[in-house]
């Protein structure tokens, strides 16, 4: 039975590939377009995550998130949690840089210290969510081999199925990713994550897309652990692009001083 399922999957995969007839160059171009999708020079948002699991009370984490593109490869980001109380003020500063390994610092209010942490960490679950640390990093498309498997309609939106396999298996916690890419918005409406087997272990579904200030933005998505059923819903309440966020926001000084960060929050994202 399992063999038949695998065979069916294989046939479908081959068939769709043949039908689509896309070259690997097309796939690479699509992956590049996805990486290059316009998202402003900088962005600031306020939102929350809801961690749910059958039979358990959901857990909610609210957070501010800031990002800034210093260059094509150099991307800085800062995440600050505002609730619940036990993680309030916790911050994560990441600097993705081309020439050096990414640098990452965490601020734990209870510790009152900024700690340098290994950005090579990929597999840990971020604050108990279904997001791995790798999911938070800015993975450049050249790290994967890409292939277009075909087309599919998701919720009435046409998508292209893109398979991405890491060139270096040690470079990613995933063995494969299948992304259903909505071309007009250059957004993956669904991503299946694999860890070696033929079945995905995790799935991301985009529930709501919106164009804000001219940029397509995922306003709501759900990541579900297909094995345990645990899921993480992420929702952005407010977002603002191109606010000229200063470099000083992405420093360890601001990381260790949550109150200092308040000055950099665009008023539009703090509204109710």
């Amino acid at each position: 039975m399992k063999f038949i399922s695998c065979l069916a999957l294989l046939v479908c995969t081959v068939t769709t590939s043949v039908v689509y007839g896309a070259s690997s160059n097309d796939a690479l171009q699509l992956a590049k377009q996805l990486y290059d999708r316009p998202d402003g020079k900088d962005r600031a948002s306020f939102g929350y995550m809801v961690l749910t699991e059958a039979g358990h009370k959901p857990r909610v984490r609210a957070l501010y998130s800031y990002g800034k593109d210093k260059s094509y490869y150099d991307i800085w980001s800062l995440i600050r949690f505002t609730s619940p109380k036990d993680i309030e003020g916790t911050g994560l500063l990441t600097r993705d840089e081309k020439n050096t390994d990414s640098q990452q610092w965490v601020f734990l209010p209870a510790l009152k210290r900024v700690r340098k942490i290994a950005s090579s960490r990929k597999g840990g679950r971020f604050v108990g969510s279904d997001l791995f640390y790798e999911d938070l990093q800015n993975r450049i498309y050249t790290k994967d081999n890409h292939k277009i498997l075909g087309k599919e309609v998701i919720n009435k939106l046409p998508t292209i199925i893109l398979e991405s396999i890491p060139k270096n298996a040690r470079d990613s916690v995933y063995s494969k990713r299948l992304s259903w890419i909505h071309r007009p918005s250059l957004t993956a409406l669904r991503i299946d994550y694999y860890q070696g087997g033929s079945q995905p272990i995790k799935r991301l579904i985009v529930n709501k897309l919106a164009k804000k200030q001219g940029y397509w933005t995922i306003m709501e998505s759900v990541v579900k652990d297909l094995k345990s059923g645990h899921s993480t819903m992420m929702r952005i309440k407010n977002i603002a692009y191109d606010q000229n966020l200063p470099d000083s926001l992405f420093t360890t000084q601001t990381l260790e001083d949550p109150a200092k960060e308040v000055a950099f929050r665009p008023s539009s994202i703090t509204k109710k």
Binding site: F46, Y48, V50, V60, A62, Y64, T82, S83, E88, I154, N155, L157, S185, L189, I205, V206, N207, K208, L209, A210, K211, K212, Q213, M219, E220, V222, M233, R235, K237, R265, I269, T270, K271, K272
Partner: peptide
């Protein structure tokens, strides 16, 4: 500004306000 809602059955918006 545009919006695509792909799933109407998502969780209701929670009353979470900025600090």
């Amino acid at each position: 500004d545009m919006e695509i809602v792909l799933d109407q059955e998502t969780l209701a918006d929670l009353d979470i306000e900025a600090p």
